[in-house]
Design a protein around this nucleic acid. Sequence first.
DNA 1: TAGCGTTATAAAATCGATTATTTATCCAGG
DNA 2: CCTGGATAAATAATCGATTTTATAACGCTA
Lengths: 223, 223
Amino acid sequence: MGISRDKGRTTTSGRIYDTLRQDLVNGRFVAGEKVAISALKEYYGVGLSPLREALNRLAAYGLLEQESQRGFRVPRLDRRELDDIAEMRRELEGMALERAIRFGDAEWESELLAAAHRLKRADMVPEAVDEWERLHTRFHRTLVAPCGSVWLLRFIEQLHDQFDRYRRMAPEAPEVRRVLDAQHGELVTLALERDIKGARELMDDHVRRSYEVALKGAMSGAD
Amino acid sequence: MGISRDKGRTTTSGRIYDTLRQDLVNGRFVAGEKVAISALKEYYGVGLSPLREALNRLAAYGLLEQESQRGFRVPRLDRRELDDIAEMRRELEGMALERAIRFGDAEWESELLAAAHRLKRADMVPEAVDEWERLHTRFHRTLVAPCGSVWLLRFIEQLHDQFDRYRRMAPEAPEVRRVLDAQHGELVTLALERDIKGARELMDDHVRRSYEVALKGAMSGAD
DNA sequence: TAGCGTTATAAAATCGATTATTTATCCAGG
DNA sequence: CCTGGATAAATAATCGATTTTATAACGCTA
């Protein structure tokens, strides 16, 4: 292997897409605001065409809204939308986790342990938030990876991005954070024990608690 | 109301997006083939920029594949992918139907009856396939509309488009078609009776039979 | 003649400028 | 004053041309 670590990072359009996606999920844009295209153009130092192509993709993905002759807009944070996203996460990740536990092999077990360990290590370094986020995303992805459905995984990833928009807006909540972090380990334990029912219940609780945290991120926006 | 029947149809980019989406779902492109951008440009009589923006959106939506420096490609028809799509349809539409039956009000009942009636009428006119397809899509959309989750509806729509790519490739199957058409009416009956279990079972069977038909569309492509 | 580098061709991606549309500004009439 | 309509400024959308990258064609060497 080697070369094909692409995914769009070769082209300007692809690079700016990745960057913007990150920045949108991390709440670096004001929710509800219009996207000033020429400002972005300056800020990221890219041309108009690749930028617009990226914006179009992001709109189709759901991280931007597109209005006919008036450009793009960062979706506003809305409590009911967060409810929707969280509930869908419970449904779909529960489903995916059950299947992953059914189908996951020994290799999966190893990767899962590794991902959980990396995440736990990152828990202790509060300054490297971005790295923690990366590992957190990766852990959850690993957890459901062998569910056998690319569409299910796709939907879950999309919901994660949406959910994280809210969570990353929310203020720190160290006590809940500790519980959530502990649950990652417990999820691994239950997965390795192939305890479907237990794992689903815990995942349900995990999302529910995360929702409580994220909810405080929706408060800043309109309601 | 009146003016805002937009959705993108005002702009060239939006129009070509709608057109291409239709044409992709209806199998007017050879699965697995590369998209000849300049050919499309000629054929639809549009400029390069709006066309590329539309292609980018379609790729994000899943009706096209995008490879880094080599443009766009129509996804090939693959049996396992169809399996995935069909199974997801069963899961998600079952879920949505259950909620729709819970939350749907009297207005929904009326619209559902109307949609089913329109579809039944269209059954009898075999020449107007496109109109039938439109009404069929609309019927299924109406059925699950009041489920209360915009994300669930969004995923279902996406899966429908994917599924229809296969189904529209498949040869006619009049005997199965009759059963499927009858099931639309039965679904309405069960929905009005608020028979959640019965409706879900029937929906499951409906998708399963449609899958059997669509499967013959996947045969033409590679496997 | 089977590889392998080189050049020619085709296609994708991007740029810079133009056109169309919306939004803001200003002024006249009620 | 407030409202509505015309004009000006700003922004979105599109075009035509250029640059970059991939693919095909070719000829050379072993």
